[in-house]
Amino acid sequence: MFGYVTIYKDELLVREFNEYKSIYCGLCRTLGKEYSKLSRFILSYDCTFYALLLLSLNGECPGYEKKMCRCNPLKKCTYIKNGEDALSKASALSVVSVYFKIVDNISDSKGIKKLAYKFLKPIAKKWANKAKEKYPYIYNAVETMSKEQFKVESMDNAQLDMSADPTAKMLKSVLSYGEQDKSRKLILETMGYNLGRWIYLMDAADDLEEDREKNNYNPFLLMNYNGEQNFKNYISQILNQSLAQAYNAFELLDITLYKGIIDNILLKGLAQKQRAVLFSEEKNGNKSV
């Protein structure tokens, strides 16, 4: 949806990078197979992370195979062999979030942009309905988020914690869905909540300048702060707090498959993105994945 949940490539083992890429390519293939060729364009790092986590929780190595790339006939890609369930859920999350994002954008934008979103809406709706049939829990979670978010942003002075709550709750329910073990469920809920909170607040931090100019709602703009640098540092602290909570929760999970990749994402990838957004540090060369 936002693409903040990425790896920090420089610190990843080459083997891990290849594994990550094969999940990424696998998700692209599944999107194309289950929805349409067009839906491949909505492939995101965030949903790749969801697939990665599901595979890791499952604990069985999915195996790898080399096949022709579906987008570029001159290239060969490595795909994961099994793990269709994880990829299918992650594809559903992709299309459903894109659909609600489009609905949201229609009411927020004007002119030609609005027209473009209106044009895209029926296509995305078709995908989202298909996903809803297969995974109603994902559709319901994102729909609830969208409704709650609207309510929160219509309030005059929704404070920061409240504004992040809908996204946080969405990821909390999606990540922990179907987990039978009680403490594992609690761990996934805490991890999901804080990761969702982080994503929402990152998006808000990213839009800060634009929202300030256009006088839009932004949870950070309600805070009074002396000087831009102090302000950015303070935002960074709030984001850090969520990340630490999410990682502390993750540490209590006893998983081994892809642990290195998830560690890399949670400890380094997200921190890197955070610095890039807040302090305009050079964005990591993730484009080449």
């Binding site: 850090n240 707090q241 990340l243 630490a244 949670l266 921190a271 955070q274």
Partner: peptide, 11 residues
């Protein structure tokens, strides 16, 4: 909380 806010994930 301050530790988390200062250092983020992983301490």
């Amino acid at each position: 909380i301050m530790r988390a806010r200062q250092y983020g994930a992983g301490g």
